[in-house]
Every structure is written in C-alpha cells, then in structure tokens.
Design a protein around this nucleic acid. Structure first.
Lengths: 233, 233
DNA sequence: TAATTTAATAATGAATGCATAATTCATTTT
DNA sequence: AAAATGAATTATGCATTCATTATTAAATTA
C-alpha cells in the first residue's frame, strides 16, 4: 500500500484544454501573429482535431482576452494596443506590490532557495547573452515570488494579465543597458525578499515593472508604425 | 442621411454568448446552487438550445472560475471556499484602492452626477427596506466608480473577481446595523469622490469592502456548517 | 444478506453534417 | 473603366450523431 499511496492520479486533460494551452503558447510566442485571422479549419487539420474542441478553445481564449471573436467572421489574435498597455500597467503594478507584501510575510526558507537558484541561473544566462534562457528564469523568479505570496487567486489574476503583454517579440528590443539594469534590479529584489522588507520589495517590483513596460511600450509603438505586414507565407 | 448616421449597428450576439450571460446570472442569483451538478442535457432542453453552444458556454464559465469541469463527469457550480474568500479579499482591496485613486483623478462632472443619482436611489431603497433594490443601486455605484477610473481592464478584472463572491443568498445575512453602517460608508464614499480626495476614497473603499467581506465570510461559514442540502425538487 | 461482479443505462467528448452568413469573383450596368 | 449587382465559393454557427466513459441497476457469489 505504501507505494500505492504515492501514485498521482492519471490526468487526461480533455482535448479542448490541451488545445487552449497550445494555442495560448502559439499566441504568446508569436506563431500566431497579432491581428492575424485564426484559420480555424487549417489549424484543425494541422493539429489533427475536429472543429468542436477547437471552437471551445477559441471561446475560452476569447474570454481570456487573447482573441476577439467576430460573429460569423471567425477569430483574430487580439493585438495589444498602446491604450490597453497603459491600462494594464497600473493594474499589474498594484498586483506586484501586493504580491511583494504578502511574499515578505509568508515566504519560507525553501521558497527563498528556489528564488536564489533561479536567480543564479538567470545571471548565468545574462553573462552568456542567452536571452531566451534569461527570459525563462526571469519568469520563474516572478512566479516564485507570486508563489511565496501564497495567494493562488492573485497568481492566476496576475498571470492572465501578464500573458497579454508577453508576446515574445518585444524582447528583441531590450538594449544591453536595459538588460544590465534589469539584472541589477533583480539583485535588489532578491535582497529585499531575503530581508523580508515589504516596503522595499513592493517599491522595487513596481520600479522594475515600470522599466519593463517602457521597453514593451517602445515595441508596441514600433509595431504600430509598420502596420499590416501580415502573412509571411 | 442625417437620420441614418445615428443608427447603431445591429448586434446579434451568438448563442453561446447569450448562454454564458444567462448561466452566469443563474449562478449569481443562486438558481444554480453551489456544488450542484449542472444538468447539461436538462438545461439544453429548458433553454431550447443544443449541446454545442451550451458546452462552449460551460467552458468559458469554467475558465472564469464559476464552474469546475470534471473530465467525463460534467460541470459543477464552484462553491466559494473560506480559503478562496480570504484570497480574493486583499486582491479586490488593492483593485478598489486603485480604482478610487484613478477615479479621483479622472472623474467628470457627468459621471459624478450618475453616482449621485444612484446614491439617492439607493438611500430610498434603504428607507423602504427594499434590499434587492438597494443591492442593485449599490452595485451600480461601484460600477460607476470603476467607470470613472477610466480603466476598462481594471473594470473587467475587478468584476470577474466580484462575481465570485456575488452569490445573492448571503444578503439575507446582513443585519440592520450593518446595513445602516454600509449606508453611512457610502455617504463618505460619495463625499470623498466629490472632493477628489484620493487617499480618503481609497481608504473608505477598502474599509467598506472589509466590512462587506465580514458579512460574506459569515455566510460562507454558515453554509459550510449545513452541508449537502442540495436538491429542492 | 452483504459484497462483488456483470450488464444496462445514461452522460460526456468529439466528429460530422447541414443551414446560414460572409467573402470572392465574375458579370452586368452606367 | 469604375461601380454595382449577382452567383459561386468558403467559412461559420449550430444541431446531430457516434464512440467512449461513468453511473446505476441487476445478478451472482460468498
């Protein structure tokens, strides 16, 4: 029995769930480009599913704000506008600040170690100029802080907003100076968390976010200047 | 031509959208009770739709956190747990505070009048002991403040959280004293907004929310003590 | 009689089919 | 030739059907 206890139940995510995740990733990674029409039929064939689960997934992603559904005219990848970006920014700021506060209250030594580990790995990527790697660990750190806050609802809410501004492309826009600065900020973040200094952590997280948004904003602007460059096929 | 200009375009919401709204309302109003199984087939017949749009709606509501989907076992109305309530509370607090701040910055005289009008109507309902009416105007006021903040993303995010704790039933639990206090708080809210006093508004909104949550918390506790009272048919 | 197994029923997940609306392209008209 | 009309094509919304999984009921066994 003792070995049986440890067995985790087999999870068989339904097709629409898998599809939702898959499509979400495709949008985030830019495989499906902004403003592009989502070719329902074509996607179904490529992914080997029928239209039913595909349409269910599209509905969910639309509810998440990643797509827009035009009745009888299909789905489009929702482009983030400058206006929306300006809206999301203060919101995420408030949530980050809250996360910082809660994290300082609740973080365990074990969770702190996770942050430290990812921090180190992130630094290594920075030194190796490995931007994708950097980005991955960066994300893990922020998720770990959310985790430490111990508020699942906060995490979910934050992530659903973060996804909207997390279109991979803008990374190319980050300058070397900005990158260095971001790394420096992360040093402060780590030390504030280690010191459980809620005010400091909240402040630096907000500052960090603000700087990040400056980069994103630049990218969005550059996108708007070269519009309708759709279809690379 | 001049009359044609004023015509608003015909919107024909798709079935699944209507269904989503309808079901959401049913959940909020307690027609579908917490932990109850959602009778897919039965609902389809009652509402005169096929399973396809119904299932699309269920997926969306599940993504919204109002339902849980158990693979091959259908959907259930997600009961709000005490734990989740404790999580939602600080989150909504942070968002209300932000809304108050932004509203003081951006509110127009016209928007202020809307708040005043609903405030008056709400008072009338209070005096008439019309709780449903009070609740409706109360909600309109809070929505008007969000509106005045001028941040659509904030509004959407806030409302999606608010829906989870907005199960009509707990209203019965509000005492006369608490009701009076809530009304008093609303007086302060209005005057703070009129004075564009961001700090004061943020503070009172947070306080107001905290008090409201005390009532909800009590209700959730009372629900947990008398479990499995499902099925009134 | 209680527990277990097996069969029957119902419900869900996903694919297909059909009707309608949108789009494209050819044709007509000015 | 440009604009407008109409037919053909395509895509979408929804209903239906089929296959699989859960649930219930019946039957068997201890």
């Amino acid at each position: 029995m003792s070995t049986l206890e440890k067995l985790s139940s087999i999870k068989r995510p339904s097709l629409h769930e898998e599809l939702t995740d898959r499509l979400r990733t495709m949008i985030i990674e830019g495989v499906l480009e902004a403003d592009e029409k989502v070719p329902e039929r074509e996607l179904c064939e490529k992914l080997g599913v029928s239209r039913t689960p595909m349409r269910e997934a599209l509905k969910v992603l639309a509810a998440d704000g990643l797509l827009t559904l035009q009745p009888n005219r299909g789905a489009r990848v929702r482009a983030i506008t400058l206006n929306e970006l300006e809206e999301v920014f203060p919101l995420m700021g408030a949530l980050e600040a809250l996360a910082g506060e809660l994290a300082c209250k609740n973080v365990t030594e074990k969770q702190l170690q996770v942050v430290r580990k990812n921090h180190k790995a992130m630094l290594a990527c920075f030194k190796a100029s490995d931007m994708p790697g950097y980005f991955r660990y960066n994300q893990l750190i922020h998720e770990a802080i959310l985790n430490a806050a111990g508020n699942q609802t906060l995490t979910t809410t934050y992530l659903s907003l973060a996804v909207r501004v997390r279109r991979a492309r803008y990374l190319a826009n980050m300058s070397q100076q900005r990158w260095q600065a971001a790394v420096d900020e992360h040093e402060v973040i780590l030390s504030a968390l280690e010191a459980r200094d809620a005010n400091k952590l909240s402040a630096i997280l907000k500052q960090h976010l603000e700087n990040k948004f400056a980069t994103v904003r630049q990218w969005v602007l550059s996108q708007q200047n070269k519009p309708c460059q759709q279809g690379e096929s």
